[in-house]
Design a protein around this nucleic acid. Structure first.
Ligand code: MN
Ligand code: MN
Ligand code: ZN
Ligand code: ZN
Lengths: 156, 156
DNA sequence: TTGGTAATGGTAATCATTTTCATTTAAAGG
DNA sequence: CCTTTAAATGAAAATGATTACCATTACCAA
């Protein structure tokens, strides 16, 4: 089991009958290289020099397509625009800590064992009680990052 | 300790030097009576017959003001518009189960004891590790509600 | 009761995202 | 390789939520 299929997302597209196009390759490369949680415009800006021919429309379309196919995850951290993140073994499930002041996002995936177990337990309880079929969960913490705490102290 | 201050939000406004106006009373009454998680337009529609003189602008302003003062909580369930909910003893902290198909929201607050304790524990760990000051958290589950599961089965 | 100031509401402006439609391109065959 | 054809693209216009402006109104402290 060496490095598993590079550009695994090309397969996903083919599987579903979508074409592997130049814009799609370029847009996905942004996620493979930069990582993080860019929004549509940030992807657009990042590409503006390298590929000024790719329209913002196509970026939006590609991002949403990839979300539908599970290639990207879509997040809303409450700052007014959707953010996207590539799905793969490394970035798979994790939780976020978000600064309410500067929107910095820290992600962590070194869950306590209890953390994972308990969430499964809660999920089972809820599925039975409310007859839901639960697909995923979001556990995000909101607060102030170190920098914003310091800034706040100074200005007081 | 009988029922604590009715319309406690009037005090909050005064405390912060804001005026108790007719539109503000009316808008907050929607939350006291209807409950739920309405968005700005739904509040506007609900008021359209009773108080057709209140502008959508004022509703947006009032909602955001109340969020700043902690009178309302603001949520984003990913369906494209912010939703608001009144904060009080009864509705205080709870988690959500959201249907990804029809956007139905169920809320629950009968946490397992472990649930509450573990979240505190995780929060402490994170505060130390990342030097954050964590103010709140969101634990929401996403999936399909009973009705949407049934509909899906039928159409197959 | 009244003056000063915050609040309001209509309208225009923003901003993210979607739709439309004419043009281009991937990829399946030949 | 060359054609064919539906899918994909990009520019521009449309949409929908939220915000900014500004002239007018209404709290409320004096
Ligand atoms: Mn992340
Ligand atoms: Mn709720
Ligand atoms: Zn910060
Ligand atoms: Zn549903």
């Amino acid at each position: 089991m060496r490095r598993k299929r590079i550009r695994n997302w090309e397969n996903r597209l083919k599987e579903e009958g979508y074409k592997i196009t130049s814009p799609r390759k370029t847009i996905l490369s942004v996620f493979e290289q930069l990582g993080g949680h860019p929004n549509a415009r940030e992807v657009f800006n990042d590409l503006s020099s390298r590929s000024p021919d790719i329209g913002l429309t196509t970026i939006y379309r590609t991002l949403e397509l990839c979300v539908r196919l599970g290639i990207l995850k879509k997040y809303d951290f409450g700052d007014g625009h959707s953010r996207y993140e590539i799905t793969n073994e490394k970035t798979d499930h994790h939780h976020h800590i978000i600064c309410e002041k500067c929107s910095k996002v820290i992600e962590y995936r070194d869950f306590l064992d209890e953390e994972t177990m308990l969430i499964k337990k809660i999920q089972n309880k809820l599925e039975k009680k409310f007859h839901f079929e639960i697909k995923q969960h979001v556990l995000d913490f909101y607060g102030l990052c170190k920098e914003c705490i310091d800034k706040k102290k100074e200005s007081e």
